[in-house]
Amino acid sequence: MAKTHVSTIINGEPVEFLCEPQQTLLDVLRDELGLTGSKEGCSSGDCGACTVICDGNMVCSCLMLGAEAEGRSITTVEGVAQGDHLHPVQQKFLEHAALQCGFCTPGFIVAAKALLDENKNPTEEETRYWLAGNLCRCTGYDKIVRAVLDAAAVMRAEAAE
């Protein structure tokens, strides 16, 4: 089966890869590019562990073909922190103990970042509905929601400075 050559941008860096037609973006990230931060929990778009941002929209990388990435710009969990400077969402997840096993965490981090990129001051309800596509079985969501709301507050304060 003929492989497709794809040129794309991942976490700000130009990347080229070859992929088979049925390979998802998640397959490519994990198995071809060694970016294993995005997790595979269901392969059906129901758990959100593979969430990435594609041209500004968050998507499940398990529901996008690798070949579709041609010319797009993708942000994965590996691209959320700037060097050794954690994103406020990451910092607040740590401070609020918003993770237990940590497997769903990359998807939540990306989804929360996408939320705060779009909405600087989300309510608890908006946050919960935005994150409804990210399953967490450990935390009961309480500390995750608190972490995201706190990160939003920090980002608002930083923006006001």
Binding site: G45, G48, T51, C54, N57, M58, V59, C60, L63, M64, A111, A114, Y129, W130, L131, A132, G133, N134
Partner: peptide
């Protein structure tokens, strides 16, 4: 239709 992620597509 689905989650916010699904809405992206």
């Amino acid at each position: 239709i689905g989650s916010q992620q699904i809405q992206g597509r």
